[in-house]
Nucleic acid binder design. Sequence first.
DNA 1: TAAAGAAGTGAATCACTATTCATTTGTTGT
DNA 2: ACAACAAATGAATAGTGATTCACTTCTTTA
Lengths: 215, 215
Amino acid sequence: MPYRETEKMRRRKAAARQRILEATRHCVAEGGFGQATISRVAREADVATGTVYRHFESKEALFAEVFRQATQREVDKVTEALAGDEPAPARLERALRRFAHRALRGPTIAWSLIAEPVDPKVERERLQYREAYAFQFRQAIDDGIRETSLPPQNADITATCLVGAIAESLVGPLAPAHRDRYTGLENAQQETLIEPIIRFCMQALTGRGGDNERT
Amino acid sequence: MPYRETEKMRRRKAAARQRILEATRHCVAEGGFGQATISRVAREADVATGTVYRHFESKEALFAEVFRQATQREVDKVTEALAGDEPAPARLERALRRFAHRALRGPTIAWSLIAEPVDPKVERERLQYREAYAFQFRQAIDDGIRETSLPPQNADITATCLVGAIAESLVGPLAPAHRDRYTGLENAQQETLIEPIIRFCMQALTGRGGDNERT
DNA sequence: TAAAGAAGTGAATCACTATTCATTTGTTGT
DNA sequence: ACAACAAATGAATAGTGATTCACTTCTTTA
C-alpha cells in the first residue's frame, strides 16, 4: 500500500488551487479576462501550465469560477446593504449607492464583471449573476409593496430594469478609455455621476426622487 | 491605354461589396457574430475568401460595418418614433415601445446588437451606438423639461439609464436559451413583458406611470 | 531504501480561422 | 487578337493560445 492521499497532500493541492485562483483574480484585476492567459496565470501562480489543468477542467471553467467568486462578493455586499428594518426604499437606495461606489473604486474588475466581452461559459455566469442582483432587489421591492412604502408594481421587471439602469450608467465611466476620469479619488466627481443615477432609480421605484428630493 | 476602370466595373464591384455585406447580415441574423466566419460569409456571398479582403480591410472592419448598418436602422426607427409635436413623454413612450417590439420581432439580430459577446472593434461600435440611442432620448427629455412636460433632471444620465433599463430587461428574453418563449407571435405574452418595462421607464422619467396609469 | 503511485512539468501539439499571394480569369482600348 | 492591367481565386500560411502527455519529481508505506 505504497501511496495514499494524506491530509498534507490534500492541503497542498488545495493551496495550489487557491494560488491559481488568486493569480487569475490578479491577472483579471490587472487587465481583464482578455489579458489573462493560462500561461500568464501559471507563471503568476508559480506552477506549470499543465498544473492548471490538474485543478481546473479548462480555461473557461477556471475563469467562470473566478467570475463567480468575484461577483458573489459584490452580490453579498448588496444583500448586506439591503438588510435592516428601515423601509424598503431606504434599503434599496443604500444598496444602489453601494453598488455604484464599489464599482468606481475598483473600475477594472468592475468592468470585467459588468461589461467586458467574455467567453460564452463566463457570459453565462454573468447572466446568472445579473439575475442574482435582480433577485435581491426584487425581494426588497416586494417587501416595500407589502409595507406600502412602494406602490404596487411588477417587482421582477422593476428589479431587472434597476440592474440595467445602474449597470449601463456605469459602463461608460468604467470603460478602459474613460476609467481614469473617475478613478482619481475625486469624490465630488463621483457624486455628480452617482446622484442622478440614484435619483432615476428611486423615482422609477417610488414615483418620487431619492434622498435629495427637490420641490 | 489598354485598361481603365469603367462604370460597369465600378458597379460590379459595388454589387460584390453589397453581396458580401448582405451575406454577413444573413449569417449574423442566423447565428450571431460568433457563427459568422469569413469562409462562411464568402460561401454565402458566392465569392472566394480572398475576395472579401478586396472589399474590406479585415473581418473586424466588415463586422463593424454590418453592425453599424443594422444598428443605424434601429436608431432611425427610434428617431422616427421620437419625432412629432406631441408632448415629450408621449414621444418617448412610443420610442421605447417601438424599440422593444422590434427587438422581440427579430430576437437573434437584436441579441447580437444588444448583448452578444463580440470583438473589441465591434464592441466599440456598440458603445457608440448605445450613446447614439441615449443621445436621441436625451434630446427628447430636454424638450420635455423645456416644455415642462417633464420635471427637471439630468437628461444625460436619465437617457443612459433608460437605454440600460430597456436593454437589460430584454437581454433575458432575447438570450438564445429563452428567445423562443417570446418569438412565437403570442402578442399577449409580449405585452406582459413590455408593459411593466414601459411603466418603469415612464415613471422614472415623469414620476408617474405611463399610458395605462392605475389609481 | 525501494516500490507504487500521485502530482508537477513544459515543450510539443492541436484547433481554429484570419489573412496572404502566386496563379488564373476577366476587362479594356487599340 | 493582343497588350496591359485589374479582379478573383482558394490552397497554403500564420498567429494565437488552449490543451495534451511522455517524462520527471515528489510522497507514501512497508
